[in-house]
Design a protein around this nucleic acid. Structure first.
Length: 329
RNA sequence: GCGUCGGUGGUAGAGCGGUCAAUUACAACAGACUGUAAAUCUGUCGCCUUCGGGCUACGAAGGUUCAAAUCCUUCCCGGCGCA
């Protein structure tokens, strides 16, 4: 059985609870009681009402963890038990057509549980976090309206953060012309430019990271400076972190990779390319799409493609773990 | 068997008398993360350390030299050419 705060799961899995903002304990000290109390006051005082509804946080569940730990499956079971609907937090599963390679759940595996934020973007164009947040916020609101509990499931920590902590990202759209011009500059020139435009952001940014520098300059150019990010939490979060010991996870990754190759993952990438997704775009998508694209272009043999891919997946696992570690604090 | 080229850190591969514990890339390990986030970027990476330094290392053993991964000799191993 799977339930709130019960970090137990079927088979040989050993989901490790990272945090325990348990739903039950939270509602005792926070939301529910206040909410009920405030209702009686509402009719008399609008001020109190606003304050109280701010205090009344929406319960939400987050299932996170590195790739191949069985998040999707776990979440479906959880959703069935808890009346939940699932919101994917995966930067590649948002794209139509990236199915096997991204490890997207199949209709059958959903077992009737509604899933959101899958197949919402065209793989030829880059999706981004602001669009993700907009769609996710909307999905959450709808789910809550239906009286169900939203369950955010995925391995993209950046996306999870944006939604859970309600990060207000600056409303500056990507400017392709500016980016093109900036891409010609050296690292040093980009650093100088940002320092001139916004010395405060310059202090906090990773000054070796061109991508970040370009984005910061883009924002500063448009609105003067990069605003400090505001975080707030409107949710009562129950965190569930799934992981396995290294050896177990490595084996799961290996087996799953072979299984997906057998299921036609290579054909999927070939198909995407035929439909007009450029090799360079596929390579930029990373992991499976990058390495299979290289293989299809005869830049890698089958064996070295699989070897390198497995290796890169493991590096990704470690980046994910690094990200999720902050949820334990 | 003769000739020839080579044997360098987990791997590939620089260095060819001192400034070499040894460029670089990959792997490994740790970390960052404000509209590309499966992306992008950073640090560490022989052993020990009181962080000054100490010790062991470039196939093996000898030798030349103030000084050798770098030169010489022999041996072992691999590629190629001729037999």
């Amino acid at each position: 059985m799977i339930g709130p705060g019960c970090h137990y799961s079927p088979g040989l899995w050993q989901p490790i609870p990272l945090t325990s903002y348990l739903w039950r304990s939270e509602s005792r000290c926070g939301g529910m009681v206040d909410a009920i109390d405030s209702k009686s006051i509402i009719r008399k005082d609008v001020e109190v009402r606003v304050l109280s509804s701010a205090q009344m946080k929406t319960p939400i569940i987050v299932v996170c963890g590195p790739t191949s730990t069985g998040k999707s499956d776990y979440a479906v079971t959880l959703a069935k038990e808890r009346n939940g609907e699932i919101i994917s937090a995966d930067s590649r599963q948002v794209y139509k057509g990236l199915d096997i390679g991204s490890g997207k759940i199949t209709a059958k595996e959903m077992r009737g549980v509604p899933h959101h934020l899958l197949d919402v973007a065209n793989p030829k164009r880059t999706f981004n976090i602001v669009r993700y947040k907009k769609l996710a916020d909307k999905a959450i609101a709808d789910i809550v309206k239906r009286g169900n509990i939203p369950i955010i499931v995925g391995g993209t920590g950046f996306y999870i953060d944006a939604v859970i902590f309600n990060q207000q990202l600056p409303a500056v759209k990507p400017n392709p012309l500016l980016r093109k011009a900036l891409s010609k500059l050296s690292l040093f020139e980009l650093q100088e430019k940002l320092q001139q435009l916004d010395s405060e952001r310059y202090e906090t940014i990773d000054i070796h990271n061109k991508v970040r520098l370009v984005r910061a300059i883009e924002i500063a150019t448009a609105i003067g400076s990069v605003p400090k990010i505001e975080k707030s939490s409107q949710f009562e979060v129950e965190w569930i972190y799934l992981d396995h010991p290294d050896e177990v996870l490595k084996e799961l990754i290996h087996d799953r990779l072979l299984k997906r190759v057998r299921k036609g993952m290579i054909k999927e990438v070939e198909q995407l390319h035929k439909q007009g997704v450029a090799w360079s775009r596929l390579e930029a998508l990373g992991l499976e799409y990058r390495y299979i694209a290289l293989y299809l272009q005869n830049k890698l043999s089958m064996t070295s493609m699989l070897e390198q891919l497995e290796n890169t997946i493991w590096q990704y696992v470690k980046r994910q773990r690094t990200w999720f570690k902050k949820y334990t604090k």
